[in-house]
Amino acid sequence: MITLTDVHKAFGAKHVLQGVDLTIDKGTSMVIIGGSGTGKSVMLKSVLGLVTPDSGTITVDGNDVQRGDRDAFLARFGMLFQGGALFDSLPVWQNVSFRLLRGALKRPKEEAREIAIEKLRRVGLKPETADLFPSELSGGMQKRVGLARAIAAEPEIIFFDEPTTGLDPIMAGVINELIREIVTEMGATAMTITHDMSSVRAIADNIAMLHDGVIKWTGPVSKLDNSGDPYLDQFIHGRAEGPIEAVR
């Protein structure tokens, strides 16, 4: 279980998180929605320890994320970055099996390659893709490789940062389905950031809406369309009029 309690974070005069409280139950898929620049990525990176909150606590299974063995902590996570964040200098299979080629989870090279090819197949990519470099792949293929890398070490918790941004609707649908299948199949806890409402409906068990640095609404996906929350209603219907200012 991931718990954020009264988390604050400011960058200079800009107060991005102003007291975030959120709980993500084990084995569930939580999707965080909210306008651009509302701090969704900062919140996600705070859980991973990539950003240090100014105050508040973040725990994973009761353990403070800022304390303890970082390597052991991060070994439990997989993450799909918005732009893929693939390493340009490494071929695809070494990107996917990066964690399996070094550190505590190190495997023999042949075994790591086999696992990489199996994970590539899992995300719908052919084995021939393994020896290409990231620059030779399309945007959709890069996302899939990023997804394969995120699941390569069978993590307990997977984060997805804008998994469908920049993809055509068909490819976005494919990625959404893959994420849902993988999360269900692995029994992993998932946290996804997205603006894409089709992703929200495809991926989420629960939804939280971040606005003005706090969680404005949280609940199951079944209540998304009749929440009665004016912020959530404006966001999911994409209305310019409403409590959320269009010009921020």
Binding site: R70, L74, F98, R99
Partner: peptide, 12 residues
């Protein structure tokens, strides 16, 4: 391009 962040999340 967040590759440095990716390294950290891959325990490197």
């Amino acid at each position: 391009t967040e590759q440095i962040d990716a390294l950290v999340t891959l325990s490197t």
